[in-house]
């Protein structure tokens, strides 16, 4: 049995969701993989929980839900997220602070500090990956630690691990997909119900599918960031946000959806890495594998040997995204275990 010590930095929807899943899956991961996951640190914005003998993840989850983390016996008011990364003796740091696509902070500093302290990093945070992918990758390599970010693109859907493991003999020729569930939901509702864009958006906001300020999603920025990550990690490009041609869904009319539908097409916000990086509403034949509805995400990988491989699944949600995060954690743990 190998004990793997974990810190979680950013204990919001995703961070606390991971704690909950660790609590629920601890026994299964032990018996199935021979790995004993132990939570030793939680770094939040206004303080931290640190306990080298192990934190009960469910207790922390419950306290976070009731916004009472300070009541935990191991609460350290003066300790910030970065202190936890530096000082708490963890093998793996799970970084789940908010995305900032301009500076990458605070995630970027958390990750760089983790690497320099010889800790592996698993993240769902796109910001640092969009701003400084190459630098992060190099620093991880220099410090001989792993850097995994399956959850950053497509939530629960496997993309990077699929390419790294199951498709490793293939050359990747192109990628296209629906990478934003909010846009997909709005377009699906406009199409099936004939709603106006504004109407479908406010419905999505009421359901908590769209943010109060939806611009990051509906203007295609989120999809563009995911393309940058895919381009850099899978195609070894050196792309930044500026390299993406971006058009969102704010200009789509219900009439255009009807006209498209009469010809057998749906309109979807598609992100594409091929000759260049492009986000735009596109016509997708209704019987095409990319024509998934609701909040689903989907991605098609074009490869030289396997042809086209398509995966679809939930692109967001605490538990779903935790599936990808734990997959990365287990992969790293196995690597640690075997020491290769």
């Amino acid at each position: 049995m190998k004990k793997i010590r974990i810190s979680i930095i950013g204990f919001g929807v995703i961070g606390s969701g991971v704690a909950k899943v660790i609590s629920e899956k601890k026994g299964y991961i032990k018996s199935r993989h021979g790995i004993d996951l132990e939570l030793v640190g939680i770094g939040e914005r206004h303080g931290s929980i640190v306990c080298e003998d192990g934190i009960d993840p469910m207790e922390a989850y419950d306290l976070a839900k009731s916004r009472e983390m300070y009541k935990h016996p191991c609460w350290k008011e003066e300790m910030s997220g970065i202190d936890v990364v530096r000082e708490v003796n963890a093998d793996i740091v799970i970084e789940a602070t908010p995305t900032n696509i301009n500076s990458g902070e605070p995630g970027l500093s958390h990750m760089m500090t983790a690497f320099k302290n010889k800790r592996h990093v698993v993240t769902s945070n796109k910001g640092p990956l969009v701003v400084a992918y190459k630098e992060l990758k190099r620093t991880a390599e220099e410090n001989d630690v792993q850097f995994r970010f399956e959850a950053s693109v497509g939530g629960a859907m496997p993309v990077f691990n699929l390419v790294r493991e199951s498709l490793q003999a293939n050359k990747m020729l192109g990628i296209e997909g629906i990478l934003n569930g909010t846009c997909n939901y709005i377009l699906t509702r406009m199409s099936t119900e004939g709603l106006s864009y504004e109407h479908a958006l406010s419905e999505a906001q009421e359901l908590g599918i769209a943010e109060t300020d939806p611009s990051y999603d509906v203007e295609g920025i989120d999809t563009a960031c995911k393309l940058v990550i895919l381009a850099n990690a899978i195609f070894d490009m050196d792309a930044t946000y500026k390299d993406v041609e971006v058009e969102g869904i704010t200009g789509i009319t219900p009439e255009s959806l009807k006209l498209a539908s009469d010809e057998g097409y749906a309109i979807k916000l598609i992100g594409e890495v091929r000759d260049g990086l492009r986000v735009a509403p596109r016509l997708v034949p209704k019987d095409h594998p990319l024509a998934v509805g609701g909040t689903l995400n989907v991605i098609s990988l074009h490869t030289d040997l396997a042809g086209e491989i398509t995966v679809t699944g939930k692109g967001a949600g605490a538990i779903e995204t935790s599936s990808s995060i734990l997959s990365d954690v287990i992969n790293i743990s196995k690597y640690e275990f075997e020491g290769t």
């Binding site: 296209e176 058009e247 200009g251 789509i252 255009s256 498209a260 097409y265 309109i267 598609i270 594409e272 735009a280 509403p281 596109r282 016509l283 997708v284 034949p285 095409h288 990319l290």
Partner: peptide, 12 residues
């Protein structure tokens, strides 16, 4: 479309 400020939606 660019000149006339129209949104063009093409098939994938």
């Amino acid at each position: 479309a660019r000149e006339k400020d129209l949104l063009l939606i093409e098939p994938i």
